[in-house]
Design a protein around this nucleic acid. Structure first.
Length: 804
RNA sequence: GCGGAUGUGGCGGAAUUGGCAGACGCGCUAGACUUAGGAUCUAGUGAUUUUAUCGUGGGGGUUCAAGUCCCUUCGCCCGCACCA
């Protein structure tokens, strides 16, 4: 019989739908629960990328296995459908984003179904559905109510041609990606969320989570906690002080100049005293054209302008030092001003060399500070530093901070690199922010009863005159009454970023049709936390952190029962094009899942995506590799031709069978899918040698393969005449004793080089191994006339004879 | 620049703890079958000057033993806050 993957896959997908095979139960509490989650896709116009199914297949395997192990499994799917590309497409083609979204969702859903994922489609959600974003708005109102949302002026990328705010990604070499016009930084009043208030908890609570290590490290570094001090430097001849943040207060005696961010308010304040204000202003304009990223990137080639006319006083030695502005100092970090200690900071050193500023050594122990900055804090000893001289750096840090606090010129300070979350977008296709601006009452929240605040319909998605959201033109929507005083007021026209809806979506899956609340407390208590969440590494510092922040906030106000949303987080590597480069239309190396499934079937596609390489690593696509997996499944299909009766594993295959169960079980759990599949392939090779497989072995084999290739294995289950469906069976067990061989081969080395191999009993002790090795004729011959210095015997591995 | 990851045959990759480098698959070579085929099966396949030696990006080190540990150096990939 031919392997008709098309017929088989359609048949079983239909069956699973009809039997509601993958629907989770909110009422059956007799089984343990398992909540597996994958990042819901943004339904783009390009359709599913081959990268999506990598993570989806992985968690599909994990959850299918969990079902066979007796768990009540929740594995849901939905659509993260607000966002920029849909809106841009809508503007360009004059189609409503809702229509575009609907079409894209339909295509994505067809593709996901075609791949046979065991999603519980009865819980499908969509972030653009008013019944969904009602609760996104509700959470925002709670944040607003608790003082965690505030409005402030922030610079945005503004395209002078399109008159629209741009994402960093849309800015290419300083010009707009779409129209080529110049992009400038423009100050806009923006809604912000105080994620920084949760910075410490976001670090601390990582310790109880089962996240892969690099995710923890990356989040911790992104939050960027540092301990140091704030120190005030007087501006000479005034009462004003420049406050700096430094992690090296111990080097205060070595400060030879100060640097302010070009945007620092004192630059404006002292403009009348500056002899070179024209130069300063020109520099500010240049800096405003660069993003923070570009500023940091240009780190090697420092630029800056001295503020001629004002100087600062070092508070510990009263030295008079010049003040500069430079774009390597960011107004968004610390206080927007630094003290520069070129002898002991690499960036300061480069700046000092370029502008010929003095370099004073205050920590001894390194090379000459005139030729290189000495930044080691472990070995340094203080010099030229008044009362700190002679101390170790760590002691000096404590001593100087005590001194600063006593004298009232500075204080101990913990700082975070993490910045508050810019929450406004001047865009149409997002959740409306449910606030009104009342001339009398200020910003007023809509009452809960008015949620959802629906996105008004329009045909014009072009932005307002100076870059406002398109909503500003829908006057009868904008103009409203103040919920507080009843007077005339205007709605906020900015919308929320795409991150909003994705920060809590896993909660809605738990109870998707609840109309009274975002989800019922009983259900949340049962299902939370998410047991296993897999997603891309690129979401580590934004989406993953944002959703942890929102969850902690919801925990604080009693809406969710757990401190953390996700117990376990793993991450898959990227799938590259056949040429080893990132897949993209412009490179012409995009693989369409539809084509692969048409030619080889979903089971082959899934098997290949798991076999392609180490799950957490980037790896290129290979059409030959796909063919290899197809051949493997064909061999599996043909096993039915050599199927014989048998209720127990045969002598020939028993040991291999137990070893395979063990290997596959462990490998799936550890996401080592490639080696798990390799073990299944190796088992088939063993079967081919004996040219038969009995029913007991066949049953176990197809059950092990089922999570990876669910269609073909269900069909084979039926053909073999096993009872019921494979999806209702139990995961196979193995007998540890039967995975261990009695006799094993060990290696005999002389001076670390392999010289012989021998079969010995597996439980032979080191002494016995040594004797056996030394008794071998070959070894005797090789060590003849040499002196045996030492013999190392490692049980079950090797014997190494060291001779002279 | 900062943060993270990574480097092993012709290719994708394997190698819990330092203990036989190259599992499994692709490709390639030879053979069988054959209605001559991009099918299937069998055998082989790291390199070389092949009783052996060399070999996990480069250089150095620790060890009886290093892909694995330490130091140093180079390359490639991802993220960098308004893409998702």
């Amino acid at each position: 019989m031919k392997y008709d993957f098309k017929g088989i896959e359609e048949k079983w997908q239909k069956k699973w739908d009809e039997n509601k095979t993958f629907e989770a139960s909110n009422t059956d509490k007799s089984k343990p629960k398992f909540y597996g989650l994958v990042e819901f896709p943004y339904p783009s116009g390009h359709g599913l990328h081959v990268g999506h199914p990598r993570g989806y297949t992985a968690i599909d395997i994990i959850t299918r296995k969990k079902r066979l192990e007796g768990y009540n499994v929740l594995f849901p799917m939905g659509w993260d459908a607000f966002g920029l590309p849909t809106e841009n497409f809508a503007i360009k083609n004059n189609i409503h984003p809702a229509v575009v979204t609907e079409k894209n969702v339909e295509n994505f859903k067809r593709q996901l179904k075609m791949l046979g994922f065991g999603f519980d489609w009865s819980r499908e959600i969509n972030t653009t559905d008013p019944n969904y974003y009602k609760w996104t708005q509700w959470i925002f109102l709670k944040l607003f109510e608790k003082g965690l949302a505030y409005k402030t002026k922030m610079p945005i990328n503004f395209c002078t041609g399109c008159k629209v705010g741009l994402a960093n990604e849309e800015v290419v070499n300083g010009v707009c990606e779409r129209c080529g016009s110049e992009v400038v930084q423009k100050e806009k009043s923006q809604w912000m969320l105080k994620i920084t208030e949760y910075a410490q908890r976001l670090i601390d609570d990582l310790s109880d989570l089962d996240y892969i290590e690099r995710v923890k490290i990356q989040q911790t570094n992104w939050i960027g906690r540092s301990e140091g001090a704030e120190v005030d430097f007087k501006i000479k001849g005034t009462d004003d002080k420049i406050r700096v943040y430094t992690t090296r207060p111990d080097t205060l005696f070595g400060a030879t100049y100060m640097v302010l961010a070009p945007e620092h308010p004192y630059v404006e304040k002292y403009k009348d005293r500056l002899e070179n204000y024209a130069e300063v202003e020109a520099y500010k304009l240049e800096a405003s054209k660069k993003s923070d990223f570009e500023r940091a990137e240009l780190d090697k080639n420092k630029t800056g302008v001295m503020l001629k006319g004002i100087t600062a006083i070092d508070p510990v030695n009263n030295a008079e030092i010049p003040i500069w502005i430079s774009d390597y100092v960011l107004v968004t970090y610390g206080t927007g001003a630094i003290m520069a200690v070129p002898a002991h900071d690499t960036r300061d050193w480069e700046f000092a060399k370029k502008f010929d500023m003095p370099i004073i050594e205050v920590v001894a122990g390194g090379e000459d500070v005139q030729s290189e900055a000495f930044t080691d804090v472990e070995t340094g000893v203080m010099v030229n530093s008044g009362f700190l001289t002679g101390m170790q750096v760590e002691d000096a840090k404590k001593a100087i901070i005590d001194f600063l606090e006593k004298e009232g010129i500075g204080k101990r300070k913990v700082n975070y690199k993490l910045r508050d979350w810019v929450f406004s977008r001047q865009r149409y296709w997002g959740e409306p922010i449910p606030l009104v601006n009342c001339p009398k009452c200020g910003w007023v929240a809509l009452p809960e009863s008015e949620l959802p605040l629906q996105l008004p319909d329009t045909k014009n998605f072009e932005p307002g005159e100076s870059g406002e959201s398109p909503l500003i033109k829908i006057r009868d929507w904008v103009e409203t009454t103040c919920p507080k005083c009843g007077g005339h007021a205007e709605r906020e026209t900015d919308t929320m970023p795409q991150w909003a809806g994705s920060s809590w979506y896993f909660l809605r899956y738990i109870d998707p049709s609840n109309s009274d609340f975002l989800a019922g407390m009983e259900e949340l208590k049962y299902w939370l936390p998410v047991d296993w969440y897999n997603g891309g590494m690129e979401h580590t510092t934004l989406h993953l952190l944002y959703s942890r922040f929102w969850h902690k906030f919801l925990y604080d106000i009693g809406v969710v029962p757990t401190k953390e949303p996700y117990q376990k987080r793993t991450s898959h590597g990227m799938i590259l094009g056949e040429n080893g480069e990132k897949m993209s239309k412009s490179r012409g190396n995009v693989i369409n899942p539809d084509d692969v499934v048409n030619e080889y079937g979903a089971d082959t596609f899934r098997t290949y995506e798991m076999f392609i390489g180490a799950f957490d690593q980037a790896t290129p696509w290979s059409m030959n590799g796909v063919k290899g997996c197809y051949k493997f499944l064909e061999r599996v299909w043909n096993l039915q031709n050599i199927l014989v009766d048998g209720d127990a594993y045969s002598k020939e295959l028993e040991s291999a069978m137990h070893k395979t169960i063990k290997k596959v079980t462990d490998d799936y759990d550890r996401m080592k899918f490639n080696t798990g599949i390799a073990a299944l392939m190796a088992f088939i090779n063993d079967v081919m040698k004996v040219e038969k497989i009995n029913k007991a072995e066949f049953k176990t084999f197809i059950t092990l393969l089922n999570p990876v290739a669910p269609h073909i294995t269900e069909e084979l289950w039926q053909i073999a005449g096993f009872e019921g469906n494979l999806s209702d069976t139990k995961w196979p067990e193995y007998d540890e004793a039967k995975t261990i061989d009695d006799e094993i081969e060990v290696v005999v080395q002389i001076n670390g080089k392999i010289r012989d191999k021998m079969m010995i009993s597996a439980d032979l002790d080191p002494k016995g191994m040594q004797d056996t090795a030394l008794a071998s004729d070959k070894i005797k011959e090789l060590i003849d006339g040499k002196q045996v210095v030492k013999v190392i015997a490692v049980p079950k591995k090797l014997i190494n004879i060291v001779v002279k």
